[in-house]
Computed example of a mutant assay.
Amino acid sequence: MEVTLLLLDKASPSESDHELLDPFVSLAEFSVSPPGGFRDHPHRGFESVTYMLQGGIIYQDFNGHKGTIHEGDVQWVTAGRGIIHSEMPDEEVNNGIQLWINLSSSDKMIKPKNKVISSTGIPRAEKDGAEVKVIAGDSMGVQSPFYTKTPIMFLDFTLEPRAHTHQTIPESWTAFAYVIQGDEGVFSSSDSSTVKAHNVVVFGTGDGVSVWNTSSSRPLRFLLIAGEPIGEPVVQHGPFVMNSQAEIDMTIGDYRNAKNGFEMAKYWRSE
């Protein structure tokens, strides 16, 4: 099992890191095969987006949700006040992206939710050699029907060789791109250096991002992700994302004592 951690998912992420990438907590590209997997584990205080690039993940949680997220599908989990779930490999090779998005202090203890969007249900648009899948937000006149608690956009772009695209982003939002495929993408400025696959580009302030695929033969595929900053303190401890150490301590106590959202921890085990 391999997991590449790309943003803030560190043992002790600094306050300045969280401020820089607010409202995002972490981005991970994972590759998992049997008998590996992510067995029963808890979460609280944020939302996660799992986007499958290859294979599938079998999901179960203590609220009765169960199913397989296949290639091209998206699963959006609002952990809220507490959830325990498992994510296990469906095929021999299973690759995907998982993004953690912070929740505001007023939403951290909301009821958990789980929504799966099938590949065929994701809106798409295409223009001048640029194709986009609109998982959240809007692009090329197409809008995702999915509502996100923390306002974000999550766009999967593919640019044909020599193609170019421009995406409008609210000026106050945090924005970054993650390159999935292609080593000759240029982001925001025509005289910038190219960005290779499996790298993150974090953008400064501005109301949009321009991207060129300078390759003459290979497509460029990247995720463009942006969100409205929350502007609150962030304390992360493993699977919990709260506003203070006291809230982290309370969350650990709630999980150990199976209360305040973790009541099913006493009884539930995944199959």
Rank of each mutant, 00 (worst) to 15 (best):
P123I: 10
G72Q: 06
E131R: 14
E92S: 09
L99M: 10
E92L: 12
T78I: 09
R81F: 02
K115I: 14
S119H: 15
I83A: 00
L103C: 05
G96Y: 04
H85P: 00
Q75Y: 06
S104F: 10
A125L: 12
I117L: 13
V134I: 15
K111G: 06
P112M: 10
S119N: 14
E92W: 05
E91M: 07
M109L: 15
I110D: 01
K111N: 13
S106C: 10
P123D: 12
S118Q: 12
Q98G: 04
N95S: 09
S118T: 15
G82T: 03
S86N: 08
G121Q: 14
Q98N: 09
I97W: 05
E131F: 13
I122L: 12
E87I: 00
N95K: 11
A136K: 03
T120K: 13
N114A: 08
R81Y: 01
L103N: 02
R81E: 02
M88C: 04
N94A: 06
P112R: 01
P112I: 09
S104G: 15
D90W: 11
P89K: 05
R124A: 11
L99A: 03
V77Q: 00
I97H: 06
P123Q: 13
I117W: 11
V77S: 00
V116A: 06
V134S: 04
I97E: 03
P112S: 08
D107K: 09
S86C: 07
G72S: 07
G121K: 13
A136W: 05
V93Q: 07
L103K: 02
T78Q: 02
L99N: 02
K127G: 02
Q75S: 04
G137W: 11
K115D: 11
M88G: 02
I110A: 02
G129P: 05
M109W: 03
T120Q: 15
V93T: 07
K127Y: 13
S119E: 13
E71A: 07
H70C: 09
S118P: 03
T68H: 04
K108A: 02
V74G: 04
